[in-house]
Each structure stands twice: as structure tokens, then as C-alpha cells.
Design a protein around this nucleic acid. Structure first.
Length: 866
RNA sequence: GCCGAAGUGGCGGAAUGGCAGACGCAGAGGACUCAAAAUCCUCCGCUCGCAAGGGUGUGUGGGUUCGAGUCCCACCUUCGGCACCA
């Protein structure tokens, strides 16, 4: 190189690649993120929902893990014993699809993806304890799924039954109710159909009441998530009532025959026992088990069967959609209303669900809109039994059901009672006569856990001709997935593996056949947070001691898409494990942060132009492959570095809100880190003199005092924003303000007070460290501060430095700001009041009037009321 | 329909009942430069005004209060969840 060539402008960007690589290696070597051996009273368990190992980190991942890592690093600085583990939710369909496409074993594909992703985690600088890694597709993990399955079976919480269940034709497997979103598969989005299959279920309904009530304890969960769970559990208070079935041959209008011992009973559930006297028919779900015996051999049989099969063929979600045309069929049979002994016709109705209540509904057209539409269509009488205060209802002319409260009419001895009082009175009467009583009904259904897929935990059951379904004994676990299988894309490969299928019956040792269904992957994620407490335990899923020491998770972070699914299952599982004596807690997650999604503008595929909203602004949509608007974290790391990416992610929006990705915003954060870099480089000599304690600072001149105020204020703010409120954006804003204050100090002071300046720079780095760990580590070292920054305690502010000698008081006249004055800290209320009244602008706005009242808020303002 | 959350500059967003718009982005002007980038300085809700200064302003309408973005009542809009669940 020759010297007379023009000098290139020095690169003003700090060398993020070198810095990040250097510190990542140092952290790895010294195992900087290792969990302390003894959690003690100062334990802090911070957990982010573990990822599916797709092989590539996306921005959504970066967001959750940046949030979690900032908390983990902050809590370590606060002296907490932090558990911050990571693992992989490694069973599931993508691996199986990859197996079909590339003819590799899903296990090999998954392990390669895990290796790749761990590398990407490291490049983001996340402080995770990989020694506690849990990978759900490995036998040392999934054997405990099998163990829990058997425990559930022993407690009667796992059972097999034939039921109409959700089937996804694309994924070729059944789905739990929670995995169906508006009639479509949660994973692939294709419509779900109904099939009648025999499947394994967990009795989550046994815990409905607890799952609902314990939501009250979760005071640090977002209201939205709790509401969703409440709605999903769907508790309704109501009544059961027994309708006596009349024998075949009863004709409407005849006297109702006397009760006989051979009478069958149809039980209904209602939330409106006050309307029992208004029942004019009964509706049964077409699948109701009694239907067959009602119509068999009658002239209604053929029609009924036709109706049932027509309904069955219909898409289940269409059929049950609101506003759907009501369809019904008269069975020819009658039942007797328990409160007034009237005979009412029994219909089949397409809108009655077998899964809810008893599958039989008393119909009150006058006071239920569905029944009303049905009655008008099939010409069934309408009978008003609740009279509104304002209007008079007429059976013949009313055009909609009246569903509000009112006074009871046509209800014998209950006439004149307010309907709200009649509810319990009627229920009491049903109970007295043993014809019903109060009851509670939930919408929650049992959790369907079997899946017709290969890449999941094998259900540890052997079917024996003699002994039936026999659980595999604990000492024979795990039942391991076979390696020698072909992935052809049709059917479950387990069905073709003789080695797997053929197994002796554990009971009689006769020939048996293994269950080929595997478990829902949500089973894996329902207890992984417990495995992290004791990840290497080969004797038990986890020791009680370790679980007691670490649980519950203090801070859990994840996407809102799991508001019901994973979060409900995990809560259920925790309660079951508690009842098994394995844990001491009722709820697994103390505090929950549901982070918002990452969005970006995108180019409309149809038009090829930037998609805009109705205001002409670029439209935002979730980053996704299909829209092609994803930003690759690796590219951002390459261009700006992980610190910039992390800072932007946490600064641009509150964690629970949507994050709009903007290149300008990322650039802004990059500029800030470069500014900090230059700022520290320019103050290295002052750093030598930095004390460790704020209290050690000498008073100094006005500029020094102002900087001391600012630095202490920043410590206070970041401490409370991070420690109590977990507000990352305002924490970073406070750090930026400190950087601004230092810059102001440098440009306005003629003489620097080196201790104050050094302390401010030192503090700036400490406060910034949880967000941008690499660059702060490097600068800490360059400044020559003791040790490494990740070993430092979070600074403490000096309360004395926050008290100013004099402060500004806002002067209001009639609540409007009119002036400002500076008063001494020692000024009394009377002094301030006098000063306020002496103020020219206050006087002019008073316009010569005598003030009626003067309010003095010490340290803040004076309001003069004229 | 039911339940929940939220409405603040051009944008993302701040504000224990006490100066609305912190922090940042975008924008305007200036400095440095042959020039650009980078960097630094200044301005930046709307409106009237040359200015000093005034008016107005947190979805809408009321209310409580000396004082309301914040509390209360009613309504509107957006987003999210559930939805023929008897």
C-alpha cells in the first residue's frame, strides 16, 4: 500500500462480528450460563416456550428468546440464582414429512436441525444452560411420557373410547378439540372432518372446576389468556330434569298414561329451569343412543334413519355453525314434562350436540331463539311463560324468542314470581320429587391424545386377545420407536414394522400386538419445564426435591397462540402430578408474558406491488414464508450484529404488542450502539477513576451534579422497569437518556469530574448489558473495569443524589399551566404559595381577582383557583 | 351474540390523578466534506401570530375533581378469542 493514495474514511462502526465471536467463545468456554447448584430462596426460573427444531431460527423465536435472555441476565445481576434452560419440542409432523421427502429417518433429520439451531442460538448470544437440554424425541425423555400415561391409566385418567372425533385428512391423524380452529386444523389449516374412531383420551374434564377456579390465583397472567381459558372451559350452572318417555302408540291430545316402572327416562340439561312450563317439544341429537329404540319398527324409522345419515354426512363444523338452518325430524314419540305432566313430541334436531349436556334438550320456543325458529318451521306450538314488564307477548304473533327475565305466567303455582327467583324454586321442586336437580355443565371435552403418526411417543399398550389392552410394565419402558421403517407417505409406518408390532402380552405372555398410535406432541410439552429441574435423572422423570426447589417457573414467555392449547394442558398436567404426589404446586407458571407477533410489510403477490391499507400506508402482516415477508435473523446478525437485533426487538414495541419490523428502526438501534462505542472509547481515561458505588461520588459543580442525578435516576428507572414491570422498551429509553446526558455533560463541561464521568460510563454499560451483552462485555474490558461484566451486580442508586437543591414548580391558574418558577428545596409551602402569587403571569391571568383557593403540591405544582 | 384488550403527533410509542407527546424513527434546516456516507448541532402536535404570546389538543358525549390520557357512566371504532353449548 502506498501512502499517497486517499485514505479511506475510518470505519465508524464497531467491529460487531469480531466482538460477538470473541465473547460467545469466552462464554461457552467458561460455561457462563450454568445454573447454580443450590437454588435456595433466591431462585429465579425464567423459561421461554421451547421451539420445534425446524433447523432455522425465525424472528418470532428471536423475539421470545431476546425477552427471556434480557430477564435472565438482569436477574443474575440482581443476585438471583437463575435457571434458564432450553430444549426442543422435537416430535411432530415436519420431521415425518422430511423423512418422506428425503428418505431419511425423522430422528436423524431432527438431530441435524437441533445442531443447526443451537449454533444459531449461540450467535444471538442467549445465555442458556445447555447442560440441562431436554429433547422430547429422545427415549430418555419420552420414556417418561409413557410412564405418565401408565400413571394416568392407573388413576382412571386415561381411557379408550369410541367417539366422533376430529380428523385432518392432510395430516392423516385425529386432532384434539383444542387443535381445531374454526373448523380447520391448527397445523395445516385444512378443514377438519368427523370420524368415528376408538381413541385414547385424558380425562381433563375431571379437572374442569380446578382449572377454572385456579385462574383466580394467576394474578400475573394477562387477562386475555385467562378469559380465553375461562371461555374454553365454559362453565354453565343449570338443572337436570327427567322427562318420562311415553310408550309407543301414544297419540297427541290423549290423556297421559300413569307412570309405570317400565317407563324409560330421557334426561335433559337446561340453564333455564324457569322456562320448564313453556316446553312444547324435545330435541335429541341425531347420535343420541336412545334414538334407535325410539323409532325401530315404526313408520318413522326409515325417515329418521335418512335424516340421521344426512346429518352425519354433513360437515360437523358447518352443521354446528350459528345461523345454520334448523333441521329436524319427528320421531313419533312423546315424553312427559316433569313439572306439569304434559306430553311433548320428541324431535331429532341437527343443532343438538351429543357431546354437550345429555344430548337431549327441552325446547321452549317462546324463550329460546333456536327453539323458536324450529317451532315455526315445524308448526309446533309456542307457549309464553315469562312476561316482560313493558310488552305483552302473544304465542301466535311473536316473531322472536323473548330471552330476558320477567314475571312467571302459565306456570301454575309459580305464576307472578320473578323468573330469576323461579329458577331455584323450580329446581327445588324437581329435586323433592326426584325428577332432577341442580347441576353444572362444562364445554371442555376430554383431551384426545392418540395420533395415527410415527414421529411421536409410542403409547405403551399391548393388545392381547385374552387380556385386552395391557399397559407395558414400568420396568419395560421405554417402548422405543423402530429404526427400520419405510416412509412412503401413506399410512403410519409403525403398522408395517413387524419388529415393533409383535410383542408378547405383559400379563399372560401370549401373543400380543402393540398399540401403533403415538401420543399428541402436546403431551411432551406438558411437563418439559419439570424435566429441566432435573434433566439427567435416569430413575424418575424428575426428583421431587429438584422440582420443589425450582418450581414454579417464575416467568414464562411465549406466543399467544398457546393461550389455550399448551397452557391449559400444562396446567392440567401439573395438577395431575400434584395428585400423584410428584410436585407440591397447583400451578406451573407464576407469571406469564404472551409476546406479540413480528410483522412486516409485504408485496402483494397478485399485483406485485407493496400491499397498502385503506389509508395508503404499507400493510403489516405476520412474517411468514407464504407471504415472503420474513426477515432472516442470520442476515441481520451478519449486517448489524446480534446486539443490534436484540436491542431493536426489545425497544421498538412493548413485548406483549405487535412488533413492526422496520429497517430504519434497526438502523437506529445500530446507531445507538455505535454511539455508545465511541462514547466509551472517548472516556477511557476517566473510566480508570470510576468508583463502584454511586455514594462515593464527590458533590462537584452544577454539571457534575446534574450528571450524578441522571445516572442515579437511570439506575432507579431501569431497576424498576426491568425488575417489577418487565418493560423493556422504557428500560432502553432510560439507558438512551443516560447516554444523552453523558454526551451533554461532555459538550457543556469545561472540566470533567473524572469519577462522575467514569461512574456514569460504567453504569451505562451495566444497565445496557442485559440487552446488548457482547458490545458491553467488550467495552467493559477495554475500559479496564474489574472482572467481566457478566459477573457484576446490578448497580444501586444513591437516594441522596436524586434530591435536587432546587426544583422547578409549575404554576397553574384554574388548572392551566401559565408559568414556571424555580424554588429552593428548603422552601416551605407558604414560601412557594407567595412566590406563585407574586408571579407576573399568574397575576395577569388572575385579572385582578382574589384567588379563591390555592393548591400546593410539594415539589410539583401550584394551582391558583380564581 | 358473549367475553377480553385497546383507541395519544406523519410512524413505533412514553406519562404513581399534577407541565401530554419521554425515547426512537421519519422529516426540515445547518456544520464538516470536492462530494456522498457517517457524525455533530438546531427545529419538529394542530392552529392564529413577524414576534412576544394566545387558542386548541389523548375515539365521541356526559360526570367526579382545584386539576382527567389516567377515575365513573353511556356510546363509537379496531383487534383478539369463543360461538346453534340448550
Amino acid at each position: 500500500m502506498t501512502t499517497d493514495q486517499p485514505q479511506a474514511t475510518p470505519d465508524r462502526h464497531f467491529p460487531h462480528k469480531d466482538v460477538e465471536a470473541k465473547w460467545q467463545q469466552i462464554w461457552r468456554q467458561k460455561k457462563a450460563s450454568q445454573t447454580p447448584v443450590d437454588p435456595g430462596a433466591d431462585k429465579y426460573y425464567v423459561l421461554e416456550m421451547f421451539p420445534y427444531p425446524s433447523g432455522r431460527l425465525h424472528m418470532g423465536h428471536c423475539r421470545v428468546y431476546s425477552i427471556g435472555d434480557a430477564i435472565a441476565r438482569f436477574m443474575r445481576m440482581r443476585g438471583k440464582n437463575v435457571l434458564h434452560p432450553m430444549g426442543f419440542d422435537a416430535f411432530g409432523l415436519p420431521a415425518e414429512n422430511a423423512a418422506i421427502k428425503h428418505q431419511v429417518h425423522p430422528g436423524d433429520w431432527t438431530e441435524q436441525c437441533i445442531t443447526d439451531m443451537k449454533d444459531q442460538f449461540e450467535r444471538m448470544g442467549f445465555s442458556l444452560d445447555w447442560d440441562r437440554e431436554a429433547v422430547t424425541c429422545r427415549p430418555d425423555y419420552y420414556r417418561w411420557n409413557q410412564y405418565f400415561f401408565i400413571k394416568m391409566l392407573e388413576r382412571g385418567l386415561a381411557y379408550k373410547k369410541a367417539a366422533a372425533i376430529n380428523w385432518c385428512g392432510t395430516c392423516e391423524t385425529v386432532l384434539a378439540n383444542e387443535q381445531v380452529e374454526q373448523g380447520a386444523c391448527w397445523r395445516c389449516g385444512n378443514p377438519v372432518t368427523t370420524r368415528n374412531l376408538e381413541q385414547w383420551f385424558y380425562k381433563i374434564t375431571d379437572y374442569a372446576e380446578q382449572l377454572l377456579n385456579d385462574l383466580e390465583k394467576l394474578t400475573d397472567w394477562p387477562e386475555s389468556v385467562k378469559t380465553m381459558q375461562r371461555n374454553w372451559i365454559g362453565r354453565s350452572e343449570g338443572a337436570r330434569a327427567k322427562f318420562r318417555l311415553l310408550p309407543e302408540g301414544y297419540v297427541a291430545g290423549k290423556n297421559v298414561p300413569a307412570r309405570s316402572d317400565s317407563d324409560k327416562v330421557i334426561e335433559i340439561f337446561t340453564t333455564r329451569p324457569d322456562t320448564l312450563f313453556g316446553v312444547t317439544f324435545m330435541s335429541l341429537a341425531p347420535e343420541h343412543p336412545l334414538v334407535d329404540s325410539l323409532v325401530r319398527g315404526t313408520k318413522y324409522e326409515a325417515g329418521a334413519r335418512e335424516f340421521i345419515s344426512a346429518v352425519a354426512q354433513e360437515d360437523r363444523f358447518l352443521r354446528t355453525a350459528e345461523g345454520r338452518e334448523k333441521e329436524g325430524f319427528f320421531t313419533g314419540r312423546y315424553a312427559v314434562n316433569p313439572v306439569n305432566n304434559e306430553a311433548v313430541p320428541i324431535y331429532l334436531a341437527n343443532f343438538v350436540l351429543m357431546e354437550y349436556g345429555t344430548g337431549a334438550v327441552m325446547a321452549v320456543p317462546a324463550h329460546d331463539q333456536r327453539d323458536f325458529e324450529f317451532a315455526r318451521k315445524y308448526d309446533i306450538p309456542v307457549k309464553v311463560v315469562i312476561a316482560p314488564e313493558e310488552e305483552t307477548l302473544d304465542d301466535e304473533t311473536m316473531t322472536a324468542a323473548y330471552t330476558a327475565p320477567g314475571l312467571m305466567v302459565n306456570s301454575n303455582e309459580f305464576d307472578g314470581l320473578p323468573s330469576s327467583d323461579a329458577k331455584s324454586a323450580i329446581v327445588d321442586r324437581l329435586k323433592e320429587q326426584d325428577l332432577g336437580g341442580q347441576t353444572i355443565q362444562y364445554k371442555l371435552r376430554d383431551w384426545l391424545v392418540s395420533r395415527q403418526r410415527f414421529w411421536g411417543t409410542p403409547i405403551p399398550i399391548v393388545y392381547c386377545e385374552k387380556c385386552g389392552a395391557v399397559p407395558v410394565p414400568e420396568d419395560q419402558l421405554p417402548v422405543v420407536l423402530p429404526r427400520d421403517v419405510q416412509f412412503t407417505g401413506s399410512g403410519n409406518p409403525l403398522l408395517q414394522s413387524d419388529e415393533f408390532i409383535n410383542a408378547p402380552c405383559p400379563k399372560c405372555e401370549g401373543p400380543g400386538r402393540r398399540e401403533t398410535d403415538t401420543m399428541d406432541t402436546f403431551m411432551d410439552s406438558s411437563w418439559y419445564f419439570l424435566r429441566y429441574c432435573d434433566p439427567l435423572n435416569a430413575e424418575e422423570p424428575f426428583s421431587k426435591k429438584a422440582a420443589d426447589a425450582w418450581m414454579p417457573v417464575d416467568q414464562y414467555i411465549g406466543g399467544i397462540e398457546h393461550a389455550i392449547l399448551h397452557l391449559l394442558y400444562s396446567r392440567f398436567f401439573t395438577k395431575v402430578l400434584r395428585d400423584l404426589g410428584l410436585v407440591n404446586i397447583d400451578e406451573p407458571f407464576q407469571r406469564l408474558l404472551a409476546q406479540g407477533m413480528v410483522t412486516n410489510t409485504f408485496v402483494d403477490k397478485a399485483t406485485g406491488v407493496l400491499a397498502v391499507d385503506e389509508n395508503g400506508r404499507p400493510k403489516q402482516a405476520k412474517m411468514s414464508k407464504s407471504l415472503g415477508n420474513g426477515v432472516d435473523p442470520l442476515e441481520i446478525i451478519e449486517q448489524y450484529g446480534a446486539d443490534t437485533a436484540r436491542l431493536f426487538i426489545l425497544f421498538a414495541a412493548p413485548a406483549e404488542k405487535e412488533l413492526e419490523w422496520t429497517d430504519e428502526g434497526v438502523n437506529g438501534c445500530s446507531k445507538f450502539l455505535n454511539r455508545v462505542w465511541r462514547l466509551v472509547q472517548g472516556t477511557l481515561d476517566a473510566c480508570e477513576f470510576a468508583p463502584e458505588e454511586a455514594a462515593a461520588l464527590a458533590p462537584g459543580n452544577a454539571n457534575d451534579k446534574e450528571l450524578q442525578y441522571q445516572v442515579n435516576r437511570a439506575i432507579q428507572r431501569v431497576g424498576s422497569e426491568m425488575g417489577e414491570r418487565h418493560h423493556f422498551n422504557t428500560s432502553i429509553a432510560a439507558i438512551m437518556e443516560l447516554a444523552n446526558a453523558i454526551s451533554t455533560y461532555l459538550s457543556t463541561s469545561h472540566e470533567f469530574e473524572r469519577m462522575t464521568l467514569g461512574f456514569s460510563v460504567r453504569t451505562l454499560l451495566l444497565l445496557l448489558f442485559p440487552f446488548a451483552p457482547h458490545v458491553t462485555s467488550e467495552l467493559w474490558e477495554q475500559a479496564g473495569f474489574d472482572g467481566t461484566i457478566d459477573e457484576q451486580k446490578f448497580p444501586e442508586f444513591d437516594p441522596k443524589a436524586l434530591i435536587k437543591d432546587e426544583f422547578e414548580i409549575v404554576l397553574q391558574v384554574n388548572g392551566k399551566v401559565r408559568s414556571k418558577i424555580v424554588v429552593s428545596m428548603n422552601a416551605t409551602k407558604a414560601d412557594i404559595e407567595a412566590a406563585a402569587l407574586a408571579d407576573e403571569k399568574v397575576q395577569s391571568h388572575l385579572g385582578g381577582q382574589e384567588p379563591k383557593k390555592i393548591i400546593v403540591v410539594p415539589g410539583k405544582l401550584v394551582n391558583v383557583v380564581g
